[in-house]
Simulated scan of single mutants.
Amino acid sequence: MNIETTINKMKKLLLDEELWIDSGIIILKVFFIILLAGIVVKIGKIVIQKLFEVRMKAPLRYSERRQNTLLKLLQNGLAYIVYFAAILAVLSALTIDVTGLLAGAGVLGLAIGFGAQNLVRDVITGFFIIFEDQFSVGDYVRIGAAEGTVEEIGLRTTKLSGLNGEIHIFPNGTIVEVVNFSLNNSIAIVDVSVAYETDIPRAEELIREFLMELPDKYEQLVKLPVLLGVQNLAASEVVMRITAETMPMQHFAIARIIRRDLKIFMDEHGIEIPYPKMVMYQKKTGSVDAGIGDPVKNDDKGKI
Rank of each mutant, 00 (worst) to 15 (best):
Y196D: 00
I7C: 12
L155A: 05
P201T: 02
L73M: 14
L101V: 08
F170P: 01
G162E: 02
I254W: 03
E237I: 07
G44A: 02
M266S: 07
S182Y: 03
R142M: 13
R202D: 07
I175P: 01
I34Y: 04
F131C: 04
V226Y: 09
Q49L: 11
E18H: 12
K301S: 09
L19P: 04
G229Q: 05
V90E: 08
I153C: 03
L183D: 13
E272A: 07
A195S: 09
R256I: 02
P295F: 09
G106D: 01
R61E: 13
M278D: 05
F135N: 06
G173L: 03
S161I: 06
M10L: 15
I43D: 00
A37Y: 05
K12H: 09
V41F: 04
K297H: 14
V98D: 08
V47G: 03
G77N: 06
T125C: 02
L28T: 11
T198A: 05
I124M: 08
L102A: 03
N8S: 15
H269R: 06
I129Q: 01
E237Y: 12
G291L: 10
A146M: 11
A116E: 14
D261E: 14
L91M: 15
M247V: 08
Q67D: 05
K50W: 13
F128S: 07
I96S: 13
L14C: 12
K42L: 10
S182D: 03
R156G: 03
E18C: 09
E17H: 14
A235W: 07
K50A: 14
N232M: 11
E204Y: 00
V178R: 08
S236I: 02
E245Y: 06
Q75S: 10
I124F: 11
E151V: 06
A58E: 14
I48L: 11
D139S: 09
I124C: 07
H251Q: 13
G104I: 04
S63I: 01
A116Y: 12
Q282M: 09
E18S: 14
L102Q: 11
A89E: 11
T198G: 00
V40G: 01
L233E: 12
M1K: 13
L102H: 12
G38V: 08
I21V: 15
